[in-house]
Amino acid sequence: MSVMHLTKDNFDSVTSSGLVIVDFWAEWCGPCRMQGPILDQLEEEIGSKVKVCKLNVDDHPDIAQRFGVFSIPTLIAFRDGKQISKAVGVQSKEQLIAMLG
């Protein structure tokens, strides 16, 4: 497995079950590029228990808007489709694990 790239076609189905963390990002954003390798590490460590995902806000502004993403990177954790936490700005691996409860 590796970090999953979400689109409007699979966003709801992927986030609707289990523990999911989504990185709302875009290519033009330096801090987002720093978040990338941290997500890869997270996926390697806990990818069997948590779906580690990314959503490109440039391709899917409607989804970003739906979740109130005003600044990137924004990270949102879901449990069974319900948002359980949200953080703005680059997050360390430890912070991401804490977001998942």
Partner: peptide
């Protein structure tokens, strides 16, 4: 309000 209508990075968030 940082991250909620306040940003330190125009090149990151401008596109939004």
């Amino acid at each position: 309000f940082l991250g909620r209508g306040v940003s330190y990075c125009a090149t990151c968030d401008g596109m939004l």
